[in-house]
Design a protein around this nucleic acid. Structure first.
Lengths: 211, 211
DNA sequence: TGACAATGAATGAACGTTCATTCATCTTGC
DNA sequence: GCAAGATGAATGAACGTTCATTCATTGTCA
């Protein structure tokens, strides 16, 4: 008596099914405290099957990084289409606290950085993601009319650097928060601080911007 | 069964010797990839001896957190005695990149946050450290004459929150940096960004205040 | 269509290894 | 001689990984 699998199309989506389970496990227990049996249990499949889709455990970690990279660049594309710079930033910022996997992602990303500090391959990947995202935001800032109104003499890339530093810092803080908070509450507390920086960097001086 | 006190004549040295070795190992390989044999090897003692001074591996991790807490509060004390707010901040900021163990500390702290995300005891400890440090800086800001000159309407605790977010964010970035850079170079790159924020928050130029 | 061969996704017990922890033993200082 | 300091081989649990085996599905030929 076998129950139907969660996903309709068997085979093609096995990889993402495994990665989905791995995200849950990695965020809950960390890379190196998660066993392959944990992942297989979470995915509802056998251990051996994982090795049909991934060479070894490290390949699973790498694939998770790649997935994260893809998510970030999609988010960047969406952010580019927002009408104002502040709205773009808000979209990008919420990328860190995805709706479908709220508190999980923060823990995963912090772990990813920890892993990067000793795994050169992961470090390259994270650096790559970061550079792409930074370049995107730098561009966004350079094109935005809001930039002109700042009372500061900072260049777009310097502004982006500050924005990303605060975003990372708030992400780090997020893993300390009690789990009783909902995902929405967590995101709002993070945004509160980030928005204070943004207002400081891009003073909109009322709606007289285009007057 | 009791363990030697921290400042006992014999036990104190051994404990810190072990913790010193543990920091090196943890930073190099992470908590869960570091074996007790690694630590004993680094410390130049036998495995069993570690268990005379620590109940188990987790107790070593906790003790490392306590040590970190002590270092931070000493740093805070030193920062309090600096003549200007910006100098205080500079002292506090460099706490993250200690002179005697340069690139190690960043990796350790990121790992500590990762551990905090799933170990409530570690989370409490890190939260405690952070709250103490934040309170200290908030106080520093409230008393500083520079605060009045900011072109912003942010309260001292909001300013402290931003400062700490950027500090954490730069610390996270530090683990991505190629190891070829010296400790001084790393610190300088981190400070560059942090200082940009500080200048923004506390405009020291007299002309900006009345412009 | 029905019988049968071929496929390969999926399983999970088993393997070799590593790890945290213990403890019988040895050393040292008094 | 004895308590406390120190050792490292021994232990057993847990881990990543392998692989012989199962079996639903698909393809083949009459």
């Amino acid at each position: 008596m076998s129950y139907p699998q969660i996903d309709a199309t068997n085979g093609g989506d096995r990889r993402s099914q495994i990665l989905e389970a791995a995200l849950v496990c990695f965020a809950k227990r960390g890379f190196h405290q998660t066993s392959m049996h944990d992942i297989s249990g979470e995915a509802g499949i056998s251990v051996g099957l994982i090795y049909r889709y991934f060479e070894n455990k490290e390949a699973v970690i790498s694939a998770m990084g790649d997935r994260h990279k893809k998510e970030i660049s999609e988010m960047l594309e969406r952010a580019r289409q927002a009408p104002t710079l502040l709205e773009s930033l808000e979209i990008l910022f919420t990328a860190h606290c995805c709706e479908d996997a709220p508190q999980l992602v923060s823990a995963f990303v912090v772990d990813l950085y920890a892993e990067a500090s000793r795994n050169p391959h992961v470090a390259d990947l994270v650096r790559d993601v970061l550079e792409t995202a930074m370049k995107g935001v730098t561009d966004l800032i350079a094109r935005a009319p809001e930039t002109q109104h700042g009372g500061n003499d900072l260049k777009p890339d310097e502004l982006a650097e500050l924005i990303f530093a605060v975003a990372r810092g708030m992400l780090m803080l997020d893993v300390l928060r009690p789990q009783e908070l909902t995902a929405a509450e967590r995101r709002e507390r993070q945004l509160e601080v980030a928005r204070r920086l943004w207002r400081l960097l891009f003073k909109t001086e009322g709606e007289a911007a285009y007057a």
